[in-house]
């Protein structure tokens, strides 16, 4: 593996880490948010707009502002599902999936109308000014500053979940909603915090992908990482550090699959099927004790 390929693992891993973290936070609270895909796009759209249209300001400030706006909007987008769940008891799964399809269609519209680059023939936004892009840190690779931000997010989410009252409440609600309510934890408020944070993290991934990798908004920018993130969070059992490890492993597979595709024509989409199979096998892990119980007869509990 070459050096730039090695760095590419982090580049590919960055959006997965952030969206995976987002899913992990939500799942921990018992909020099955599969809307990371849509929240990613909300972040990408908002970040692009702020970066393109913000008036003259120091570039660093514009980057921070753009990412922050993306974070907030992505969080608000996820809140729709949380509020519908709290108010009408609608399944957050169906609502977030519908919201995903809505954003993806809206992106298609935006790139053909108000965000369209008039000079280009394909639906894409104008290129973001070089000064307002997230800088590359390591020469001869695409290792950018956003990756460091993702690592910081892992640490922050870990701290939040393990060392703060809010984290304790989030986990308590996820473990047993009724027990949490009985013990005076405001369940609805906690779920809303968790949904906001979850959506925000996914949106941050979208913003970073625009500012650091693509440098403009295009269709299909997420490469389905919002759905992959769900699987990553499941494999990582919703633990922040495990999300980091699993994301990087997944990214390594993806990078390697890319070169397989070039060399021997194995489609790189095989990675997604592979990871789906892994989760199915994890779910089926109880099959071993199941058969043992059958053989052992009555001596099993």
């Amino acid at each position: 593996m070459t050096f730039s390929n090695f760095m590419e693992i982090f580049v590919k891993g960055c959006p997965l880490i952030l969206t995976g973290l987002g899913c992990a936070v939500a799942f921990r609270t018992g909020f099955f948010n599969i809307g990371a895909e849509g929240q990613f796009y909300v972040g990408a759209i908002v970040t692009t707009m702020v970066s393109l249209y913000a008036p003259g300001m120091p570039p660093l400030l514009v980057i921070i502002l753009a990412l922050a706006c993306g974070f907030v909007c992505g969080g608000l987008w996820a809140l729709i599902a949380a509020i519908l769940k709290a108010r009408f008891n609608l399944s957050e799964i169906i609502v977030t999936i519908m919201l995903n399809y809505m954003v993806i269609n809206f992106l298609g519209y935006a790139l053909r109308s108000f965000l369209m680059d008039k000079a280009a023939n394909v639906p894409q936004s104008e290129k973001i000014d070089v000064a307002r892009q997230i800088p590359v840190l390591v020469r001869a690779s695409r290792f950018h500053a956003g990756i460091l931000l993702a690592l910081v997010c892992v640490a922050v989410v870990w701290f939040l979940m393990q060392k703060t009252t809010l984290g304790y409440e989030l986990k308590a609600v996820g473990l047993n909603r009724r027990a949490a309510a009985v013990n005076g934890i405001p369940v609805v408020r906690t779920v809303i915090y968790s949904a906001f944070l979850s959506g925000g993290l996914a949106a941050l991934a979208g913003g970073i992908e625009v500012l650091a990798i693509q440098k403009k908004l295009i269709e299909g920018i997420s490469a389905n990482c919002g759905y992959t993130a769900v699987l990553i969070a499941l494999i990582a059992r919703n633990k922040p550090w495990a999300v980091l490890v699993v994301s990087l492993l997944y990214a390594a597979l993806q990078v390697q699959a890319g070169s397989w595709q070039r060399q021997s024509g194995v489609p790189s989409s095989i990675v997604n099927i592979f990871i789906g199979l892994i989760v199915i096998l994890i779910l089926a892990k109880d099959i071993v004790p199941y058969f043992r119980r059958k053989e052992g007869g009555s001596n099993a509990s």
Binding site: F32, I34, I93, Y227, V230, L231, L234, P267, S269, I270, N272, I273, G276, L277, V279, I280, L283, A284, D286, I287, Y290
Partner: peptide
């Protein structure tokens, strides 16, 4: 069915993963 009925896995997770797996397979 095997995952949820016999192995008592979480239905939401099993169903969602099934969708990801099968749509990926069909597209491939």
């Amino acid at each position: 069915a095997v995952l949820t009925v016999s192995l008592k896995a979480n239905q939401l997770v099993a169903g969602f993963v099934l969708t990801i797996f099968l749509s990926g397979l069909a597209n491939l």
